[in-house]
Computed example of a mutant assay.
Amino acid sequence: MFFRPTIRLAALVLATAASAGEPRHGAAPAAAAAPPIASVPPLVSAASPAQLALARSVLVDSGIASSFRLIIPQYLEQIALSVTRTRPEMVPDLNLVLAAVRPEFDKKVDEMIDSAAQLYTQRFSQKELEDVAAFFKSASGRKYVGMQPVLMSDMFVAMQAWSQKISVDMMSRVREEMRKKGHEL
């Protein structure tokens, strides 16, 4: 019953895009096109400790690791909401328990960072990881990471307007073409 925050975020973005383009008067929603995926390089076998450390550095410096860290408080909050919705008398004790178990689960974030680092070493060569790490350590890379929340917010607003316009334009075109075939939508 608990949603994974990363999946929830993706679902929220997709749902927002879809709801911005909600059908009006029987119109069908516009289909979202996925961005093209680059060809996937073959998996590299075993990574050296140096390559794993470099991959971890990329995860930390790029801000990806901090997004893993956000999951723990979100899950704890979901548990609190779920339990206290039906058992409000438990709030004081539950708050103590959640505070007590949080450090245990905060440590588990490193497991995910290690797993992600392993995935990076399977898809990027040592040289590529060095290049990526250098970018994120540069002034431009640090600015890129720092601007991500602002850019995501800006893109969210832009995406809503764009998807609504696309939905309306697409339905208009489909209606026009269906009229040519003798159908009225």
Rank of each mutant, 00 (worst) to 15 (best):
P23W: 04
E104H: 10
A117Y: 06
L151H: 10
T16Q: 09
I166A: 07
V174E: 07
A15N: 02
D61T: 09
F135Y: 15
M1K: 08
A38Y: 00
I113W: 08
M171A: 06
E128T: 01
E77Q: 15
V101F: 01
A46C: 09
A31I: 05
K127S: 14
R175P: 02
A134E: 11
V132F: 04
V168C: 00
M178G: 04
S125M: 00
Q126C: 05
L119C: 02
L12E: 09
L185Q: 05
L76R: 07
L81R: 14
V40D: 01
S138C: 09
R8L: 12
V168E: 12
E184C: 12
F105H: 10
P103I: 04
L9T: 11
K143L: 14
A55K: 08
L59I: 00
A47P: 04
D169S: 12
I72P: 06
Q122L: 00
R123T: 08
L14T: 07
V157P: 01
G63N: 08
R56F: 02
I64A: 12
Q51M: 06
A139P: 06
R175C: 09
P73M: 03
G63P: 09
L14M: 13
S167A: 15
V168M: 05
I113H: 04
R175T: 12
A30G: 02
M171N: 11
G21P: 01
I79F: 14
